[in-house]
């Protein structure tokens, strides 16, 4: 589904990503972890072309993300993305947030879009808040709306960029629960996160990044049982002792 081949990205002398290669198959859940500054957010933003890269290739269902001939908006409409800071549009209510992409990009009718929106709000447990504005919701509620907004586009894959890092601790679980449900339903997911409990539960593979490189890329059981690199071992020992 998603193939990342030898991606490198740099700003002048500073190399953000160096020779990163991996893939995510249909129905796979891949967790990307690592210390801050390791490039994991940048890598995931390269997948849907939000960040350009200088070297390498990324293919989404065979379509090259970096090619000049690719219709990026169309490609992006097929990949859902959830951001660390939720990024709901503050001047629209929750239903309009979820409907905007459907109407403007997928060209659905307003009625269809609103029906879908309400159904998705029900799915994430927020149907009573349909007419509220993002500023009136808690962080956890906003993030669940953001997930609904991404799902409204019927994506083939979902990218999550540290979805719970900006949340107060008591709200993390409500978001993770939604993500776990998505994973068990078979959604292809690439998740940048520190939440190792989530990884242990539903991830198929775990990727560890450090200083712009993919240091380890292993099946979940192997990663948690016997991480091969020192850096991964150090990182795990630091974050698993919460």
């Amino acid at each position: 589904m998603i193939e990342i081949k030898n991606i490198s990205k740099w700003y002048g002398a500073f190399k953000v990503l160096t020779g990163c290669s991996t893939k995510v198959d249909k129905g796979e859940v891949v967790v990307v972890c690592g210390p801050s500054g390791s490039g994991k957010s940048t890598l995931i933003k390269c997948v849907n072309g939000l960040e350009p890269f200088q070297e390498g290739e990324i293919l989404v269902r065979g379509v090259a993300v970096g090619a000049a001939s690719t219709d990026l908006p169309k490609l992006r409409s097929k990949i859902g993305m959830v951001f660390q800071n939720f990024e709901l549009f503050p001047h629209m209510n929750v239903t309009d947030n979820i409907s905007l992409g459907q109407i403007k990009v997928l060209e659905r009718s307003k009625e269809e879009a609103v029906d879908r929106a309400l159904a998705l709000l029900k799915r994430v447990g927020l149907q009573e808040h349909a007419l509220k504005y993002p500023g009136q919701l808690s962080g956890g509620q906003q993030q669940r709306v953001a997930i609904a907004r991404a799902l409204a586009m019927d994506p083939i894959a979902m990218l999550f960029d540290e979805p719970t890092s900006a949340l107060d601790p008591e709200m993390i679980n409500e978001v993770l629960d939604v993500m776990v449900e998505l994973a068990t339903e078979g959604m292809t997911m690439m998740v940048v996160t520190h939440e190792m409990g989530f990884a242990r539960k539903v991830a198929h593979r775990v990727i560890f990044m450090d200083k712009g490189e993919i240091v380890e890329d292993a099946k979940k059981e192997d990663f948690f049982g016997q991480p091969r690199s020192d850096r991964a071992q150090q990182f795990l020992s630091k974050i698993l002792h919460h």
Binding site: K45, N48, L50, P73, K74, L75, R76, S77, K78, I79, G80, M81, F83, Q84, N85, E87, L88, F89, L100, G101, K104, V105, L106, R149, A150, M153
Partner: peptide, 23 residues
């Protein structure tokens, strides 16, 4: 306006003019 808002709009598949107009 934080860059994240633009990213969120683009990630949905909106074109840049659409991002200006709606976000």
């Amino acid at each position: 306006i934080p860059a994240g808002q633009t990213y969120a709009g683009l990630a949905m598949g909106l074109t840049r003019p659409q991002v200006y107009r709606h976000v």
